[in-house]
Amino acid sequence: MNSLGLNWFIEGSLDFEHKKYVLLNYLQEINRHFDKSKLYPNLTDLVFHYNNLLDFKQHKTTLQQAFPQRLTKADIEAVKLTYKKIVEDDSSMQEIERIITYALGKMDPAIQIGKEIYDFVESRLNIDPVGLVPLLPYSGYFSLRNGSGSTNWIYEYQLSIFENKDDKYRGINVQFVDTYEQSISNTPESIKLNLINQRRHLPNPAVFYVQSDISFPLEQTLLPVAKRSLVKYIMAA
């Protein structure tokens, strides 16, 4: 993917037309992927850069990396004071603000398209528990079926929950296990029994059957959305 550098908007020459070209070239590739319903890592990368621009615009705390030669002290208070001086005295900051404003205006519609694709994919997913679910279903397996195909991908998952002073975060780690062809005799229930017998480190795992009724790119779209949807499903249960 044609990616942007972390500080692309302040690195090198602060020429608006050049930065505009760099940005539009990046967004063109993002939209090409979105046109094929390929969400990741494109949407994650786009949201990261959007938030990075907002943070710089609102908090202006990345100066230490952006203009190290213009700092007099390395501590954070000195960074803030020095930045304030540059904002007031240096015309280059006006060009940076112009670049940021333009970039935010162009990135926002692309993010909205990505979110619409995500919401559509999520709406086509169905999640069902396979058999009884343990009281704490924070580790186990899920079987993922992509559209009308008979192939199922099995993943082991581990849910993690961590908090800071402001919020609670939920994450999920997955590891590919195997594939199987679903049939009358080869069902999610029979696969669950096989997993329990063959993988003894999870003697009483939670197992979920996740299916989309439309086919999507597996690695770039279906799997990432399925992971996030499974986290929401488990936490709401």
Rank of each mutant, 00 (worst) to 15 (best):
D75E: 15
D75F: 13
I76H: 10
E77R: 11
A78L: 05
V79F: 05
K80T: 08
K80E: 12
K80R: 12
L81Y: 08
L81V: 10
L81D: 11
L81P: 05
T82S: 11
T82H: 05
Y83D: 09
K84R: 12
K85H: 13
K85G: 09
K85N: 14
I86M: 15
I86L: 15
I86A: 11
E88R: 07
D90H: 06
S91V: 12
S91M: 09
S92I: 09
Q94W: 08
E95P: 03
I96C: 06
E97V: 06
I99W: 09
I100M: 02
T101Y: 04
Y102R: 06
Y102K: 06
A103T: 07
A103F: 08
G105D: 04
G105N: 04
K106G: 05
K106E: 15
K106V: 06
M107S: 06
M107Y: 07
D108I: 10
P109Y: 01
P109A: 00
P109R: 00
A110L: 05
I111C: 08
I111S: 10
Q112C: 06
G114T: 13
G114D: 10
K115G: 05
E116W: 06
E116Y: 06
I117L: 04
I117D: 02
D119Q: 05
F120R: 13
F120M: 08
F120W: 10
F120A: 07
V121I: 12
V121M: 11
E122Y: 08
E122S: 11
S123L: 02
N126S: 15
N126V: 10
I127S: 02
D128W: 06
D128R: 14
D128N: 09
P129R: 00
P129L: 01
V130S: 00
G131Y: 03
G131W: 03
L132R: 12
P134M: 01
P134D: 00
P134R: 00
P134F: 02
P134N: 00
P137H: 01
P137W: 02
P137F: 01
P137E: 00
Y138W: 10
G140H: 04
G140R: 03
F142E: 01
S143F: 15
S143C: 10
L144A: 00
L144N: 01
N146G: 07
G147I: 03
S148E: 14
S148R: 14
S148D: 14
G149F: 10
G149T: 14
G149M: 13
G149E: 15
S150V: 10
T151I: 12
T151V: 13
T151Y: 06
N152H: 10
W153Y: 15
I154E: 01
I154V: 10
E156H: 05
E156A: 03
E156T: 02
Y157E: 07
Y157L: 13
Y157P: 09
S160F: 09
